[in-house]
Amino acid sequence: MITRRDLLLSVPASVAGARLLHAQQPTFRVGAQNVPVYVTVTDANKRLVPGLEQGDFEIYDEKTKAPITIFDNQIQPVTVAVMLDSSGSMTMNLELLKQAAEQFVIRLLPEDRGRIGYFNDKIAFLSDFSNDRDMLIASIKDMQFGNPTRLFDSVLFSLDELKNVEGRKVILEFTDGADTASRSGLGEVLRRAREEEVMIYGIGLQSVMMGMRTKPDSALRKMAEETGGGYFELKDTDDLGPTFTRVAQELHSQYLLGFEPQTDGKVHKIDVRVTRPGLVARGRRSYQAPKS
């Protein structure tokens, strides 16, 4: 029998069996009367923790404990926009980035849908949302270079593309530098991600330009932390493949919790906790309450 842990730790050669299991699972839908919170749980060694139950979690809405009205520990299908920085600083590393993105696509499950895009001074999508892994991998090869870097705009373009998508929505954003040319800012990104309930993952690569080491835009971490996604900052391109693989593993091992929102029309802070000692829970930090 294939277990949840088997599925999470499977290598590409064994994905077919895991895919069959996933295809038999129903899609879970969250009603408008609940706030969905997708939660990643790790232990002290950063390993993903499966097998938890509803009683292992607590949710606090503005420091007041909220009853958990929805709980599901099965794999939830995801629609993900993968946006890759192809600005001039990535010239020497673009092929490695393409290979890493392929590792992520390979690990998408049959009910998942992905879309590949890139950004520099331009923002372009190389595919439609699809579960055709071969097509998505082929599209990665069409990335083009450019300058400068429109990080925030690329997130907003992705939000536009996800706006009419039903179900769980994720943006996976990669960059090796700071935003230098966006027409929008971090505040607008966070507002829309909160209101449209989109999780953002960030992968940042430190790079060397003219003998100096540069860091990815600090806003990338902020976007990930506020929306419940993970943030990974890399010093070595050798870590690109394993990190893109880790993101896929996390997306297929998260818990779905839900609670009834307040109805005051305000932005509310959320704190998700796991009660078992030694474990850490990560989820979105806020939601936009409806107004009664």
Rank of each mutant, 00 (worst) to 15 (best):
E233V: 03
H252D: 03
G51F: 04
F145G: 12
T91D: 14
F129D: 14
R192F: 01
M1T: 14
L136G: 08
Q262K: 10
I2K: 10
L251F: 00
G241V: 13
N93Y: 04
V189Q: 11
Y255A: 05
E111D: 11
V170N: 12
V247Q: 11
I106Y: 06
E233K: 09
R221T: 11
Q24P: 07
Q99A: 11
P277I: 04
F259T: 09
L126K: 13
L126S: 06
L234H: 08
G229V: 13
D56E: 12
N45W: 00
A224C: 15
L8R: 10
T243D: 14
S218L: 09
G117K: 09
A101D: 07
A248V: 01
F119I: 02
L190P: 05
T27E: 11
T69A: 09
D179Q: 03
T175Y: 01
G278V: 10
E95V: 10
V155Q: 08
T91A: 15
I70R: 08
L7W: 13
A281M: 04
R29I: 02
V41A: 01
D239V: 02
A193V: 10
F157I: 07
R4D: 10
V189S: 05
V165K: 13
Q288N: 05
F174W: 00
S253V: 03
F104Y: 05
E53V: 11
L162T: 06
D153W: 08
L162P: 06
V198L: 05
I75R: 02
